[in-house]
Amino acid sequence: MAELTKPGTIERDRLIAWALGTFHAGVLLVTLVLLLHVTGGLPSLLGGLNTASGLALFAVLWVTTVWSTRRTLLGALGPALRNEMPIYQLVGRAVWRGGINGAAFLVGAGLVLAIPIVLSGSSSAIYSLLAGALFFATFGLVGAFVVGCTVGLLFGGIDALLLMAARALLNSH
């Protein structure tokens, strides 16, 4: 356990969380864009979202995913990337953290999308926003948590395979 608190290990874990968190957020978005593109649904989505909102939404996803990945990996890897906990426990943690990430992203996305509405000063738009916020705070958060858990399970499995590949390369010399 003392090895985990070494400065080198802390720095290593920060880099791994940064890389895996960015990998998760980036691959998720590119996969969604690819699926929408091949099914022909991309133009209508792009037509309904302005560039600034799109950039801000991805920034929120990126920040919450890196944070959630860092929490998932806390103390999970020992020297030379060895597992410090059983793989099922690590994947279980990825599922839970994925759910929290989904809910955190929904809250962040809601704030990003609410800013222009509030700035518009239209009372009817603000009333609709409050009604929407009530829906998001109940059903939306539950839905986002479930979707986040599913995505967390998927990426937990992919990460476990990528860690195995890295260990195999490390041990090959």
């Binding site: 070494k6 080198g8 290990t9 720095e11 290593r12 880099l15 791994i16 890389a19 020297p79 030379a80 990337l81 990528l162 860690l163 890295a166 390369l169 490390l170």
Partner: peptide, 10 residues
């Protein structure tokens, strides 16, 4: 990245 991170740790 994982290989580089493992190398920098050691």
């Amino acid at each position: 990245t994982l290989i580089v991170a493992a190398g920098s740790e050691a």
